[in-house]
């Protein structure tokens, strides 16, 4: 059951989208999100849709994988759609009991659903095409100006990459503990929600104890390998901006500008 977690899932590949600098992809995602929230009416949403479809096609990620990412959000999407459908004032189209459906309601619901879907799929495209290490490297590099105000950028990136490194190890360990507790007669499947929550304690306690022990050993091993903070550290893979990165960012800015201009037209 724990194997289903898709956090930070990455599909290796060698397409132009994969090869873009992680910083470019992070900035593009940011521009994309901002543009998405400034969208109004059909043409600008259409523009965003065309952009996303092009990016997905170039990355050769199967659209199925992107839709799979939407699944856990289905409830939220349906909920927002329904709320918007019934609770927007405007020209009444149909009315029954206490519900009113308005033209504006339909519009709002449609755009909001579209916005959420585009948002989720866009960010998923980032994690699908960028390895977690590249992502943390990119983040460290983008945030590095904050070092001037003593923000612990390197430490944050290091913590993120170690956390990502230990996710599979800890999942494996949790599975082992669950089996061990089941073999001792622990019951995780029956009873109400409180009983089940309480049944988690014999899993969490050993998991935490072992995580602390691991952390201690890891710290010693890191010290043995001369870790002494971010100062004077070099990188195996250094990040370089290429022409394609500049072009991509220009495209992102153009997209944002286009969306802002389109706000003034009802198209």
């Amino acid at each position: 059951m724990l194997k289903d977690i898709t956090l930070g899932q990455y599909f290796p590949g060698n397409t132009i989208v994969h090869r873009l600098d992680p910083r470019t992809k992070l900035l593009m995602t940011l521009l994309y999100i901002v543009a998405l929230f400034l969208c109004k009416w059909f043409v600008s949403y259409g523009l965003m849709l065309v952009f996303l479809i092009t990016a997905v096609a170039l990355s050769r990620i199967r659209p199925k994988a992107l839709f799979k990412g939407l699944k856990p959000l289905l409830v939220i999407i349906v909920f927002t759609a329904v709320i918007n459908l019934f609770y927007t004032d405007g020209r009444v189209l149909a009315e029954f009991w206490i519900f009113k459906i308005t033209v504006e309601g339909i519009q709002n619901a449609f755009f909001l659903v579209l916005r959420i879907m585009l948002l989720v799929m866009g960010t998923f495209l980032l994690t699908y095409t960028t390895s977690p290490i590249a992502l943390t490297d990119g983040l460290e590099s983008l945030l590095s100006p904050l070092k001037k105000i003593h923000f612990p950028v390197h430490e944050l990136a290091m913590m993120m990459s170690i956390a990502l490194r230990f996710i599979p190890t800890l999942i494996e360990e949790t599975d082992k503990i669950i089996s061990a507790q089941k073999a001792r007669g622990a019951d995780f499947e029956t009873g109400n929600i409180f009983r089940r929550a309480k049944a988690l304690i014999p899993i969490l306690v050993p998991l935490f104890v072992s995580a602390f022990r691991r952390a201690d050993e890891l710290a010693t091993a890191m010290e043995c390998r001369c870790y002494h903070g971010g100062e004077g550290r070099t990188k195996l893979k250094q990040l370089h901006y290429h022409t394609r990165d500049v072009l991509c960012l220009l495209l992102g800015l153009a997209l944002l500008a286009g969306v802002i201009v389109l706000r003034h037209f009802t198209l």
Partner: peptide
């Protein structure tokens, strides 16, 4: 408990990276 990175070569590179 002594591996830092989630790619083999990145992990091997950890010590030389620290040494600059």
């Amino acid at each position: 408990n002594q591996m830092v990175a989630n790619v083999v070569e990145e992990d091997v590179a950890f010590a030389p990276e620290n040494l600059g």
